[in-house]
Amino acid sequence: MTRYFTEDHEWIEVDGDSATVGITDYAQSQLGDIVFAEVPATGATLKKGGDAAVVESVKAASDVYAPVSGTVIEGNAALEGDPALVNNDPEGEGWFFKITLSDTSELDSLMDAAAYKAFVDGL
């Protein structure tokens, strides 16, 4: 399994042709207390860079984009009752959705963990 990152602070963990997507620990720490998350419906078709989910802190609403194109297998239903999971375990239990990738070559443009760390350090 390989984990990639976007400049929009999403992470995607790829396992074969399916993947799990969430927002990074850096993103949650900067957004602050998460009070609401809206995840995509099973079967929804996502386009790389398109709107996929919404995360809301006390202050503001933010879009979560699809790091790659694909079809949604599952949204994380636990976030509805406990949006703070995104704060408490952003890169684990606080995942947003799982997708089937339609074009694995789209992963080539994403950052690995070291590159993302360097990107965040430069912000």
Partner: peptide, 11 residues
């Protein structure tokens, strides 16, 4: 409309 997470952080 909401902005991306990155845009929210940059705001």
């Amino acid at each position: 409309q909401p902005a991306s997470v990155a845009a929210t952080l940059e705001r």
